[in-house]
């Protein structure tokens, strides 16, 4: 069994929305792609997400929001990561995120946004290609 480096991913639902179908499907797909996936459950504050990412030593954080609160919460996660001195973690987002919001989110440091209908393989390949192990 290979115990060499494994990609560790935190899949998190910031904010209050309870729609976790997407987050759970992505979590399972990443596992099936050989990654170690830590799922945080619902209603996570940015503070909780960053702390979990820090403690768990993850290489990637996947944030999922369907409520429209992404403009407030995604950049907050990035800010807190910076405060903790974490600059080597890949952060990606998903959910219902209008095209117009994406440039701002990218500027805040979110590496990629995956909207509805994104094939799971695309997400997996993106993470594999972009994480720093």
């Amino acid at each position: 069994m290979s115990s060499s480096k494994k990609i560790r991913v935190l899949v998190a639902k910031p904010g209050l929305d309870g729609h976790d179908r997407g987050a759970k499907i992505v979590a399972r797909a990443l596992r099936d792609a050989g990654m170690e996936v830590i799922y945080t459950g619902l209603r996570q504050t940015p503070e909780m997400i960053v702390r979990a990412a820090l403690d768990e030593g993850v290489h990637c954080i996947g944030l999922s929001i369907l409520s429209g609160a992404h403009n407030a919460l995604f950049p907050r996660v990035m800010e807190l990561l910076k405060e903790e001195g974490i600059d080597d973690v890949l952060v990606v987002g998903g959910g219902i995120i209008p095209e117009d919001d994406i440039p701002e989110l990218k500027k805040a440091g979110i590496a990629a946004i995956f909207g509805p209908g994104t094939p799971l393989d695309e997400i997996i390949e993106y993470i594999k290609a972009n994480v720093k192990l």
Partner: peptide, 10 residues
């Protein structure tokens, strides 16, 4: 505090 960013959204 927990309402931040969510008020009036959905």
């Amino acid at each position: 505090v927990l309402a931040q960013g969510e008020v009036g959204k959905v």
